[in-house]
């Protein structure tokens, strides 16, 4: 080696300095990264906060919706039946035995129907504690009720039937999505047949709801800035980390599919 000792010493000092600076830079990097983590954390908190408020809103909406359906049903179905019974009974002429018997039988049938409807309705109201028995049961009840009260032909493949899986926060949102979709079908579709398929596979719940109604123009309805319900559907699916897809053909019907990580 040709270098003089002083040169070597300065090289050593320099090397030592570098070896001290390297970990210092590492520490600096960690501190700055940590700051980013803080920002990220704050963002996350904001998102959960939003999620919770949205959830609260949803749960209130679910309640309101249920009340509305109950009111409608009381008025349209049971109210109708009872007033029909009333008319029938008040038109009875006791002297005409044959006719009276016929009318009384008819009234009995009407009252039987009212009782049946009331029972169905009671089930739906009970269903308000709805999700207590799980999403699957709540949907089952709702669909049954729709079947009987509005005379739809509904098929329901329930992939959650034999599982104990549930997700307290997601179930409510999913139920709300179902309600909005069915609401739309009742309100707009003029359908006779509804297919509902719910499947759970590899932690993904996929839901498809098809009707054979009149369909609509998706682009038009969204550009009309009318589709509050549909927009809400999209928002809700995103809220629980899912994807939603709507397709509709005029005169053919509408198909809505949602995929959500579950539970």
């Amino acid at each position: 080696m040709q270098s003089t000792p002083t040169e070597i010493v300065s090289i050593i000092l320099l090397a030592s300095l570098v070896f001290l600076l390297a970990p210092l830079f590492l520490l600096l990097y960690i501190v700055s990264y940590n700051k980013k983590k803080k920002l990220h954390q704050q963002e996350k908190e904001l998102i959960t906060e939003r999620f919770e408020s949205e959830l609260l809103k949803t749960s209130i909406e679910v309640q309101e919706q249920t009340m509305q359906t109950i009111a409608t049903d009381l008025h349209d179905n049971i109210g109708q039946l009872l007033s029909l019974t009333h008319i029938t009974l008040s038109s009875i002429n006791l002297n005409d035995y044959e006719k009276a018997k016929h009318k009384i039988d008819h009234s009995l049938e009407l009252i039987g129907n009212s009782i049946r409807d009331l029972r169905q309705l009671a089930k739906v109201i009970q269903g308000e504690q709805l999700l207590e028995n799980g999403l699957s049961q709540a949907l089952e009840k709702g669909i049954n009720w729709l079947k009987h009260s509005r005379n739809y032909n509904i098929t329901f493949e329930n992939g959650l039937k034999d599982t104990e899986l549930s997700s307290a926060s997601k179930d409510l949102v999913i139920l709300r999505i179902f309600q909005e979709v069915f609401n739309n079908i009742v309100k707009h579709a003029e359908a006779g047949h509804i297919d509902v398929i719910m499947e759970l596979e590899k932690d993904k719940l996929s839901i498809v709801i098809k009707d054979d109604g009149k369909g609509f123009d998706i682009t038009e309805s969204s550009s009309r800035n009318q589709g509050l319900g549909l927009n809400n559907l999209k928002k809700r699916s995103k809220l629980i980390g899912g994807d939603m897809d709507i397709s509709s053909k005029l005169g053919k019907g509408t198909r809505i599919s949602i995929t959500v990580p579950y539970p």
């Binding site: 030592s16 001290l20 390297a22 970990p23 590492l26």
Partner: peptide, 17 residues
């Protein structure tokens, strides 16, 4: 951090030494 600086710097220095 103290441990890292001490042993990292120390290792380097001792090796060269």
């Amino acid at each position: 951090a103290g441990i890292l600086l001490f042993y990292f710097g120390g290792t380097a220095f001792n090796l060269i030494y």
